[in-house]
Nucleic acid binder design. Structure first.
Lengths: 251, 251
DNA sequence: CGGTCCCTTGATATTCATCAATATCAGTGG
DNA sequence: CCACTGATATTGATGAATATCAAGGGACCG
């Protein structure tokens, strides 16, 4: 019941897992044929849920597979010379992690599970073979990587140009958007990462993050109960995130 | 002589351009066959040199091609709501730009030439077709994009965690490494970008960049004559860049 | 040679990090 | 169920790093 091999469950059921997966359109090419879905299905290993603190992979690990998140959340981070950590991303269902390892064959970052999380493991050699046979699969992979590059560039702007307030607002808006896109509430959600992780990711001290949450509450922008977040004034928060607001306590 | 169409020159000569290009191993899969090089050659459009200030593409432009830099340098940047600019990268010969546009079909950033620069234009639809026929080409593209994602993540660490000194040192070291890899001097080179661009890229004010150059000179780390840079103590600069030094004026 | 842009330098202001103390939370075992 | 423990969060006081403001000096271009 609790062994570590890919959960076998019912083969017939699994066989259609990708086709039925709610993340379907997030990770599959739009026009992919049914038998192609089946072929993809066969190379994907569904792993039993990981729990908070587990590593999906670690810096230095040999690159064998990319991972799709089915449920839960993951943080990726690198370790700097001094032993310091830099969080490079928070990843939600439907997202692919491990893409940065392709070019060297070794993971240049680590991935840690933030809450109970289900992952699909996609062995990369199989994915490459399959991409050669199903061109739209390769194209989709390239598209996903392109999006990744673009969103990293946006993050650069965030860290390079924005104030602490704008950064936190931007993170909350990003999470809100991504959750909504996946069918969750845009206004109310659970922050699976610690304040420390948030600060690290945004390039801020923990204390600053904490003060910001307090200030946002005073301004009536959000209600934050520990990890539970409720966005009260979504548009104002969005305005703050894009820098087009001066953050007044309601005009 | 100075029309805008792809320079025709000698067809026979061009036909082998990719094979002879000094950037060969940077943009071609290692094990690619001769006739495959030929096929790639045929889809690549060599454009006549662009001059400083020219745009390769602009934010909002329809995505048609990616561009390889043969000689010269390019900066990429996005424009924020407030009209502000965020420089997202400086690109040297052998690098590919425009990859962030693939997933939407519209360029989310602009690319501006920093000095007289030769570009190869690679129409993306042709590249996709060719990748379906030459699997190693598609794989190489994916590898290049993977590297891009990884280097963006490193930049995130730079902006999130490092001091002003460390940032500038890291930029100089990065340029030095990349130039050396391309056969140029690692210790002496021309900064084609303005102080403004550097500050923008590093998330610093121009004045700070200027002061840093002064300080680096006082410390004997570099000699900077306007745009001409000479690295005097490469290892010390590298140590500073990785944060493993306290920047003493020579111990 | 004049104009404009870019760079440098100095003085001051601001933001955010750091230090320190307390408070809260999530487990753990009694 | 409660007390205990370590991790995590909040809050306040202080300081350092860097932005901003202001002015002068070069470099490049017509």
């Amino acid at each position: 019941m609790t062994d570590c091999s890919p959960t076998p469950i019912s083969l017939a059921k699994l066989r259609l897992a990708c086709g039925n997966c709610s993340l379907h359109e997030l990770c599959l090419p739009v026009g992919i044929g049914l038998d192609d879905v089946d072929r993809l299905d066969r190379i994907v290993k569904r792993r039993r849920p990981s729990s908070r603190g587990d590593h999906v992979f670690r810096l230095g690990d040999e690159f064998r597979a990319v991972y799709a998140i089915r449920a839960g959340s993951v943080k990726t981070y690198t370790t700097t010379e001094g032993g310091g950590e830099q969080v490079t991303g928070f990843h939600l269902p439907g997202e692919l992690i491990g893409l940065d390892a392709i070019h060297t064959g070794t993971h240049p970052s680590s991935a840690k599970v933030l809450e109970t999380t289900s992952l699909c493991e996609i062995p990369f050699d199989h994915l490459e073979e399959l991409s050669a046979v199903i061109p739209s699969l390769g194209r989709q992979l390239i598209r996903i990587m392109s999006r990744e590059i673009h969103s990293d560039d946006e993050l650069l702007t965030l860290l390079g140009k924005k104030s602490a307030e704008e950064r936190l607002a931007a993170l909350l808006i990003s999470l809100s958007n991504r959750l909504q896109q996946r069918g969750f509430s845009a206004r109310e959600f659970h922050l699976s990462m610690s304040r420390n992780d948030i600060g690290n990711y945004l390039g801020l001290a923990v204390e600053t993050v904490s003060r910001l949450f307090t200030r946002f509450q005073q301004l009536g922008l959000v209600t934050a109960n520990n990890k539970h977040i409720r966005i009260e004034r979504l548009e104002d928060l969005r305005a703050l995130a894009t820098g087009s607001s001066s953050c007044q306590p309601r005009g």
